[in-house]
Every structure is written in structure tokens, then in C-alpha cells.
Write a protein that binds this DNA or RNA. Sequence first.
DNA 1: ACAAATGTCAACCATATGGTTGAATGATTA
DNA 2: TAATCATTCAACCATATGGTTGACATTTGT
Lengths: 120, 120
Amino acid sequence: MVEHFSDALDAVFQALADPTRRAMLAELARGERSVGELAAPFEISLAGASKHIKVLEAAGLIRRTVNGRTHLCALEPGPMHAGAEWLRHYEHFWNTRLDALEALLDAEDAPPRPRRPRAR
Amino acid sequence: MVEHFSDALDAVFQALADPTRRAMLAELARGERSVGELAAPFEISLAGASKHIKVLEAAGLIRRTVNGRTHLCALEPGPMHAGAEWLRHYEHFWNTRLDALEALLDAEDAPPRPRRPRAR
DNA sequence: ACAAATGTCAACCATATGGTTGAATGATTA
DNA sequence: TAATCATTCAACCATATGGTTGACATTTGT
């Protein structure tokens, strides 16, 4: 009853939690890439890379189109957006909390008002 | 040579990949909470909750102040911000890519210009 | 028709993760 | 001082993860 879409976020964050996969996404941000091309920069087997790619695919972060014997991968931004939204919520909250704290401090300590730089 | 701070992102995304931990963060967004308070909503042992909290702490997402026999936890927004920044980079990219695609489609198909709703 | 290229699959391994229980630690209260 | 409260620690368990290798399936080029 907590969150119905939590599984999706689970998969997205889980997929993002690995540096190899993040690097693959970074590469895909530059354009479509085949599995082999995605695997090339890393010192892992093709099968290993294939697994990573399947994780990204399962999280919905990439889409794959089979083209003959090569599989072309492309970024699928929707889920990434969902993750960003989740984080954005906390950023917002955190900002307002800092603002509130600052207001409190300003109210409490004396007139001169040192005006620390704002957190933003 | 890829990313020096990747370990930090690993830990943050990994920590966010669990729904229990995300719920704990949501609770902490409402104010400081003791370990017991954080554990209460879930049907897991206190030791289990303690482990989750340690994961959040290790990722730098929360801070803990021991106060007698109770441990008070509070959100630590820095790392969350880092995660958000990482995602924001891709959102930006994705938006420009969608814009480019749309421009292409607009250029290619005829005058009437159906004007699909913009992705944003 | 054959060989090479592109990937996946299955089996396996080591380690990490999420969970448990029971005992231990340290602060508080009676 | 003894009981209780808030938490961690250690050991354990089942499953997931990231990696490997070797065999298999399909395209493609000769």
C-alpha cells in the first residue's frame, strides 16, 4: 500500500547503481550503440556486458532494436525522468528546510544579519 | 580515469534502490527520527531496520547523532543532490534530443503541422 | 557451402544483500 | 542495584549480483 510504482523505481535506481551501466548510458547519450560497441570500453566479457545491458533494458532505461545480427540500443528517457522526479521532490524539501532553518537563525541572532550565501 | 566520485554515486543509487529505505527517507523528510521510529512502520526486525539505516548513513544520505540511548537520524541532502545532478544531465540531453526529433518530423511531414504536445 | 562476426544462453563461482534470531552494550528508571 | 529500554553486533540463511567460460543460434561475407 506504500507505493504501487515502487518496483519501477527500484529497478531504475538499482540499474543506476553500477558504474559500468552508468558509463554505458553516458555513451548512449551520444547516440545509438550496438552491444559490442557498448562492451568495448570495458574489460569484461561480451556476455558480461550483455547482462548489464539486459539490466538497463529491464529497468526501461534503454530500448533495443534487433537489426540483423547486431542489436542497436538507444536511451529511453522516461524512467530516468521518474528517478529525477523522485530526487527533485527531496531537493525541494531540503531547500525549504534550509530556508526555514535560515529564517530561524536570522530571527534568533542579532540585527547585523551576516547573510550567509543561500543554499541554491 | 572514468569518474573519481563514482563510488559515491554507486552508494547513493544503491541506497535509493530499496523501497524501505526510500520510505525511511520520506519519513525523515518530515523531521528527525529515532531508529525505533524509523523501524516502526515496517514489518521487519529492529536489527533489519538498523541495517537499512546504516546503508543510508554509509551513502551519506543521513546523519546520526547519538543522544543517550537513542540515535536520532536526519536527512543529509548533499549526496541526494549529486544523484539528482547526474540524472538532470540526462534529462537535459533527452529533452534536446526529443526537440531535435520533433524538429526533424516537423520539417519532414507536410504543412498542416499537427503539433503534438511537447514532452515537458 | 563455409567461416567469421554478433549476440545470447546456461552453468558456474564468489561476494553482496536483505532478512532473521539471540546475545551484548549502554543509558535510564525504579 | 536491578530491571528495562534503545540499539548494535554476530552468526546464519536464502537469494541476487557481477563476473567468467563454453556452447549455441543467426547473419553476413567469401
